[in-house]
Every structure is written in C-alpha cells, then in structure tokens.
Amino acid sequence: MHRIGLAIVLTLLTLTSCRSDEVATAECRQQFADHQQMLGENGNPGSKEFTPGLTARWDALYAEFGALGKSATADECPEELTTLKRRMKRVESVLYKIDDYDVARMIRAAEGDLDDAVETNGPAARRDYVLQSLFRTLRESGADAQKSLAPFVEDADAVDPDDYSALSKAMVDLYNAAASNAAFADFKEALETIEDYELHEE
C-alpha cells in the first residue's frame, strides 16, 4: 500500500512538472510572438533601395522572432529573447541614423508635400518663383550629394551592427563625408527653407 501511495505521489509530481514546463514554454513562445507583432506594427525602418543589407538583417531577425514564437523552449527565456531584442535594437538604431542621409527619401517627402498643397489649395505653390528655385536646388544638389555619399552609406550598410568598432568607424566616416560635402549642405539648406513653407499644413 505504501508503495502504491508513493507511486501516485511521484506520478502527480511528474505530471505537475510537465505541466509547469508546458506553461513556461507557452509563455516564452508568446513573448517572442508578441515582440514580433510589435515589430510588424512598427514596420521595417529600412529601405531596400537605400540600405539593402541592414534592411535584410531586420527582416531576418523579424523572421527569427516568428520562428521562436513557435519553437522556443522555456530555457530560451529570458536570455535568448533579450539577446535577440538587443540585436534588433542595434539594427534599428543604425537604420534610423543612416536615414538622415537618405537624400532620395527626403526629396520624395518634400515633393509629396508640394503635391498635397497644390491639390488642397490650387497651383499657386508651383508658381512661386522662390519655391521653384528651392526645389531645383533640392534636386540638383541632392543628386550630387547622393552620388558623393553613396560609398560611405554602402560601407555602413555592409557592417555587422554587432561589430561596434567597425560600425563606429563607418558611421564617423559617413558623418564626416556629409559634413564636408558642399552639395549636401546646399541640399539641407534648401530642404529646411522648403520646410519653413509648411506645405504639409497648407
């Protein structure tokens, strides 16, 4: 009788332990899935045209969150979850910094604001001589700046964000190249003046 009772106790302990492992695994997977959902809602901050390498890294990490949301074991939380979050944060941080040099994107945004202003208030904005001159400078200087900065952007895009030393050098090189580039300075000045028109608020 004593042996039967002991067997029952051991069986219950085993079932409880298995149940605890199942709950812990489910909770761990849910954390990966929840973070992937949040990333999906925010979207990839990169551009395949401007930063193909880092954009692909973001996509790969996003997919990894999804995979672990279905296959992670309890012991992968919190360490693996924290590590993956940190890696994604580094990728996003670099993407946001490089975005400051995405000349094509900034031109598209300014032209989009102009189109919206014309649609809302008529063609007066397109006939503004100063604004026409500013957009001409924006496009011409922007094209020159984009060509000059492209090699530095490519270098930064190719670096592994986990390689802090290489990344730091690439970003400093990009910053210095932009800071000393006359075309980029003219481009930024024209863009800032256009923004003073507040076309998007017309």
Rank of each mutant, 00 (worst) to 15 (best):
L61S: 04
T83D: 15
Y175L: 10
S180D: 13
M88H: 11
L134A: 09
A117N: 05
D21L: 10
R86F: 10
R29P: 13
S180W: 09
S141G: 03
E64G: 00
L191S: 01
A72V: 02
H35L: 09
E119D: 04
R126C: 00
A7I: 04
Y129N: 07
A145S: 04
Y96I: 04
T120C: 01
A117T: 05
K89N: 15
V153C: 02
Y101L: 01
T51V: 06
Q36G: 14
A72Q: 07
N121Y: 08
T120G: 01
A170W: 12
S180E: 13
L61W: 01
E22F: 12
F32Y: 11
Y129R: 15
D34Q: 14
E192P: 00
R127F: 12
D196F: 13
K188V: 06
G142A: 12
A124S: 14
K70M: 08
P123F: 14
S20D: 02
G142K: 12
K85P: 06
F187T: 02
D196E: 11
L114I: 02
L81E: 01
T193G: 00
A110P: 10
Y175M: 11
G5E: 13
K97D: 12
R87K: 15
K70T: 10
E192Q: 14
A178I: 03
L12T: 05
T14G: 10
A178S: 09
V153G: 04
L12E: 00
Q37F: 05
M38P: 00
R29E: 03
E79H: 09
N176D: 05
M171V: 09
M38G: 05
G53A: 05
V153Q: 03
A26C: 11
R19N: 01
E201A: 15
I8W: 05
